[in-house]
Design a protein around this nucleic acid. Structure first.
Lengths: 146, 146
DNA sequence: TATGGACCTTCCAATGATGGGAAGGTCAAG
DNA sequence: CTTGACCTTCCCATCATTGGAAGGTCCATA
């Protein structure tokens, strides 16, 4: 199976398959005589695993940890559970931060007359920092969301 | 005021102040005879505005729009209100997506015995895609969170 | 006055995940 | 045999931010 078919079956673009190989998230596959990468069913499984994990916001680095557990079946599934729960905690923290942002903006918008006055409280508050919490350094242990 | 003091007062690092100048988010400040950038109170105001907006997850590009409204006082504050409410909507959408991710992971973790069995349902589900929604293309019109 | 250290300048590189594209090789159908 | 759809590697861009190198400036202290 060539990389294109693998991409279609797994939902991971060919570009990203090569990238994952590059950063050692997956191991280099066998090559045909023409130099094309050759994938089989187990690779598709692996790529689908990666795609779903990425969809859930898991970092490539975190996936790498899961992959290791996956390959090394001697490790307990409790490790996997722990990783998953850690990720849940990170997601919930991120959710609280977003809620705080949204509430601040909603509060400001509610107080904004929208009548063309030059002293719009949104701009004033952003400039002066009136009261609402300023969550600096949000995503320290978590990274980006997609 | 040199760039270091401006950084301290505004909470924006000197690196980022130069970057914002580079991408034309702020205009080049005056220079002293020695070539040092010279800032005044109004610049600090502007930088604080930028910092707070970034804290709220507003993109530099979006801030650029707000800055334009700020500088051009002839524009109605209703425009600012509209931008803020658009951002609130984006935040709430992002929040729902995160909730879905977290629920999926919690569901999987709850069904995981954590007893070392090799068929941990978390791994199985990630690999096979069992039932739960797969929110592809999450952040299309929104970008990254910090 | 000399020197050291704390500033400042510009430029270059890296991060993470992904997309885009160029230049060139390969394969299969018409 | 040509055409088009693949494949390969390599480089560049994104976004916000940090880090560092190489070199200039300012001020206080020995």
């Amino acid at each position: 199976m060539n990389i294109g078919e693998a991409a279609n079956l797994s939902g991971v673009s060919a570009k990203m398959i090569r990238y994952y190989e590059d950063v050692a998230l997956i191991r280099p596959p066998a090559r045909n005589q023409n130099g094309y990468r050759a994938y089989d069913e187990s690779n598709i499984h692996e790529l689908r695993f990666i795609r779903r994990a990425r969809d859930l916001g898991v970092t490539v680095e975190q996936i790498s940890g899961l992959m290791h557990l996956w390959r090394d079946r001697s490790r307990a599934s409790s490790d996997v559970k722990r990783l998953a729960l850690e990720h849940v905690a990170a997601l919930e923290a991120k959710q609280r931060e977003i809620a705080e942002m949204a509430n601040t903006l909603k509060h400001l918008a509610a107080n904004c007359q929208g009548d063309g006055r030059p002293d719009c409280p949104i701009i004033e508050s952003l400039a002066d920092g009136c009261g609402h919490a300023s969550p600096r350094h949000l995503g320290k242990g978590f990274g980006k969301l997609r």
